[in-house]
Design a binder for these strands. Structure first.
Lengths: 267, 267
DNA sequence: ACCATGGAGTTGGTCCGACCACTACGACCG
DNA sequence: CGGTCGTAGTGGTCGGACCAACTCCATGGT
């Protein structure tokens, strides 16, 4: 035990400046014991900044597509450092609320379903175990309803798009390509349902990595044939414009995977 | 139009160094023309850091609840500055993936539905116009199914919780309190459905600010009586353990608001 | 008159280093 | 043995410097 500390009255830090003029930063902020100052008593300054920007948008002081002031401006305006402001902006960027264009400025996104629900994919990618089953259950509910809606509304052009991917899926043996067209098949159907918000949620629930994780094992068990039959059933219902048949077919389709995953977790 | 921008000249910055020894920062990084170096050619370093941390969790190298290395460590490990690393961490924090405890460290959350879907509320808070209708349609689909599931599974204890809020809601005239118990009423039902993921999504779709925005106008039109009747119908179906009746009652309940909002947008 | 071009200024992206605030853990003292 | 007080360690904040990408306009050639 060397024991080389203590020696009271030491200078700890300090004594290192003198390179630059002493930082006259005595009365920075928080000098008072959090008295009647202006700053809200909430959490970190960054969190406060996030809330304030969100509030600006919610209150309509910032319209979708509109450009925000500079990072430097914003920071000065809220009385925080640019670093903290950047953290706030980054946070809102990953949430799909803001969009930063290097050299140009920061803009509010269109706040459409696709923008805001992109993060939904993260949930699907990081969930595991029983949570995956719950996620599939949600997908079953939404996708079956969406498919039913699509059966009632789908146009000739949209149906052609669906059939294109259905044919492509049946014409190849490359798992990668099958997965791609499988995704596109369902995406085309959901798009025909006419609810972009639902489509965006389902997009997240069917994200590439999510499906790759679950379907890998599923299809290795020779489920290709069954998948094909189920897709055909969904397609028939769409052609017949039969919502209830479409709902049942879609629910069964997702339900199959769901049930398989459930047994996997038990074993 | 004053247009007092410009004001050319002015020495801007530069000429301020010389306080510290010249920064011998010539060959920092990126010296080579992005040749065969290690760094991925993707977007900003921060985005890369976000993806890498996410990957660490997805691959199981970081377990839920586990503590991460220091910000300083992490930054050094990925070869980026602490500032950039902090932005990445902040982003994952707002996504509900990480949790920072001041003075202690950074931890992976339990990655449960509630953690990851908290951001869903942002969508509801920032959506407007037609998107609100789409959001309500999603809620109608999910909530009606959840209520049906609850009717089949609900226990005596859970039913008592539901009835508590139903009674409290009918016993007051304070809109604030009604809203609170209304939320709790539906929350208790959805909880009885047994799918935490669905519950978390519906929680976001019924966030306080969201409901306040829509409900305000809706209830001002004297919809209290109707709301009460609908709640009673839902309750009856739960008591009778009748899933289909519960589904219909819940769908009608949300559908009423949905339809009202639709007319609002037209007018 | 019109368009390509180039440079200057603006703005986000990255980095550094310092200091502050909080926590955890262990030595010290009663 | 248990409470107390430091101290080291960690996230939080700050300010400044420089880099890289974009914008806009003056310039000059066609």
């Amino acid at each position: 035990m060397v024991r080389l500390r203590a020696h009271s009255g030491c200078e700890r830090r300090t004594g290192v400046d003198e390179t630059v003029a002493g930082q006259a930063r005595a009365p920075v902020r928080g000098a008072g014991p959090r008295g009647v100052e202006a700053a809200g008593p909430k959490g970190t300054v960054t969190e406060r900044a996030i809330e304030q920007i969100k509030a600006m948008i919610a209150e309509g002081r910032l319209e979708p597509g509109e450009r925000l002031p500079t990072e430097r401006d914003l920071a000065a305006r809220l009385g925080i450092s640019r670093s903290s402001m950047r953290e706030a902006i980054r946070a809102l960027t990953v949430l799909g609320v803001l969009e930063a264009r290097h050299g140009s400025g920061i803009y509010v996104t269109q706040l459409e379903a696709g923008d805001l629900l992109e993060t939904f994919g993260v949930v699907a990618d990081l969930s595991r175990g029983p949570q995956l089953v719950e996620l599939l259950e949600v997908r079953r509910i939404l996708e079956s309803t969406a498919t039913a809606l699509a059966a009632a509304r789908i146009t000739e052009g949209e149906l052609a798009e669906v059939e294109k991917h259905l044919a492509a899926m049946n014409a190849t043996d490359d798992p990668e390509e099958i997965l791609s067209h499988d995704l596109a098949f369902h995406r085309a159907i959901v798009a025909a349902a006419g609810n972009e918000t639902m489509a965006a949620i389902l997009e997240g629930l069917s994200s590439r990595t999510f499906r790759a994780r679950v379907w890998r094992g599923y299809q290795e068990e020779g489920a290709f044939a069954r998948t094909r039959r189920e897709h055909a059933a969904i397609h028939r219902a769409l052609v017949a414009h039969d919502p209830e048949a479409a709902r049942a077919a879609a629910a069964a389709h997702v339900g199959e995977v769901e049930e398989w995953l459930r047994t996997q977790l038990r074993g």
